[in-house]
């Protein structure tokens, strides 16, 4: 009986200590703004290294890898209605690590890796018709590149070609279906970098090459097609922005780099202020740490989901409110 009592005391003591410790750590978290709300209502289509784009209030995502198979299925998430629809299958070979971007209301997915080869083929998606059309192939194969649409052109650059990391950029012109090499990127070769676009300017950073996470940060002006170096991602001692396989997105004039890989999957989130060229840490992603996730953003709302942590492939989706106080209970 006495023995049992002492156990009870021990357990109560340990529980109290755990409460004190956990309340201390949650006080620390309060320094960072940003709240997360889980939007997943079903076990969706778990996959990582997905590609997609957001057009109007619909986030499109497809292809990817689920741990067993390379995928060709393609889904749309309705931001307002908070539901999914399965759209026309991607017509190319199933793949992951492709790029996806939007140019003037049309979606594009291409390049990537099918489990054997790095790929060059590219396709456009018409949201109104729910149809895919093959377009001119990217001149050089690659996976884990960056892709973005700006100033009525598509841009694809960096990545891994099967032998080397790359630093070349290509510009796609939808009016004559051609790719032209774009010179002038002064950064290092890399794979699995991230971009976000604020007021028509495209910011590029992060990524990895030969095991080194890169610290340089660039802005691309698509009207002059020129790159300018910004402050490095380790400019301040407290910065921990460098990583690879992250997601980049823009909400209300700020850029964000979230989740990714840094010797393992991470869930940290950093906010970029283009007016001061400074970074600020936000509340970390509430779900599991993850890399190769996807972000849908219409400029004012953003959703992050899918991806993987180690060999666990994820299917959940969270909405991020960068200006709100963190609440654990919602």
């Amino acid at each position: 009986m006495n023995k049992r009592k002492s156990y009870v005391y021990k357990i109560t003591g340990m529980a109290l200590m755990a409460m004190v410790i956990s309340s201390c750590s949650s006080d620390d978290d309060d320094d960072d703004l940003g709240n997360w709300i889980d939007k997943s209502v079903f076990d969706g289509s778990a996959r990582s290294s997905i590609s997609g784009f957001t057009i109007d209030n619909v986030g499109y995502m497809g292809v990817g890898y689920d741990g067993d198979d390379y995928l060709a299925s393609f889904w749309a998430y309705d931001i307002e209605g908070d539901y999914w629809s399965q759209k026309a299958d991607f017509p190319g070979v199933a793949r992951n690590a492709a790029v996806g971007f939007e140019v003037d209301g049309t979606g594009y997915i291409g390049s990537g890796y099918d489990g054997v080869d790095e790929l060059t083929d590219f396709y456009s998606y018409n949201t109104a018709a729910n149809t895919w059309t093959e377009i001119a192939s990217l001149p050089t194969a690659r996976r884990s590149a960056v892709g973005f649409g700006a100033n009525s052109f598509g841009f694809v650059g960096t990545g891994y070609d099967g032998e080397n990391d790359r630093k070349d950029f290509w510009k796609y012109n939808p009016t004559n279906d051609t790719w032209v090499e774009l010179v002038g990127f002064g950064g290092n070769k890399r794979r699995s970098a991230t971009t976000f676009t604020i007021d028509g300017l495209v910011y590029l950073g992060t990524g990895v090459s030969n095991g080194v996470y890169l610290d340089d940060f660039w802005v691309f002006d698509p009207t002059t097609e020129s790159w300018t170096k910004k402050l490095e991602l380790d400019e301040e001692d407290e910065y921990a922005v460098a990583r690879s396989n992250a997601v980049g997105f823009t909400v209300n004039g700020y850029g964000y780099i979230a989740c990714g890989e840094l010797g393992g999957a991470t869930n940290t989130v950093w906010e970029y202020d283009p007016s001061s060229d400074e970074w600020d840490q936000k509340t970390s992603f509430e779900g599991a740490t993850r890399q190769d996730a996807i972000a849908f953003s219409n400029g004012s709302r953003v959703f992050i989901g899918m991806g993987r942590t180690g060999t666990l492939y994820l299917d959940d989706l969270d909405e991020f409110f960068p200006l709100d106080e963190y609440e654990e209970e919602d």
Binding site: V41, F42, G81, Y83, S85, Q86, A88, A129
Partner: peptide, 22 residues
Amino acid sequence: YQIMKGEKIVILQKFIPGFPGK
């Protein structure tokens, strides 16, 4: 069809899933 979880729509399928067009 729509797939519901309680009162909530989780999948809305106006077109045959996976097939091109409408």
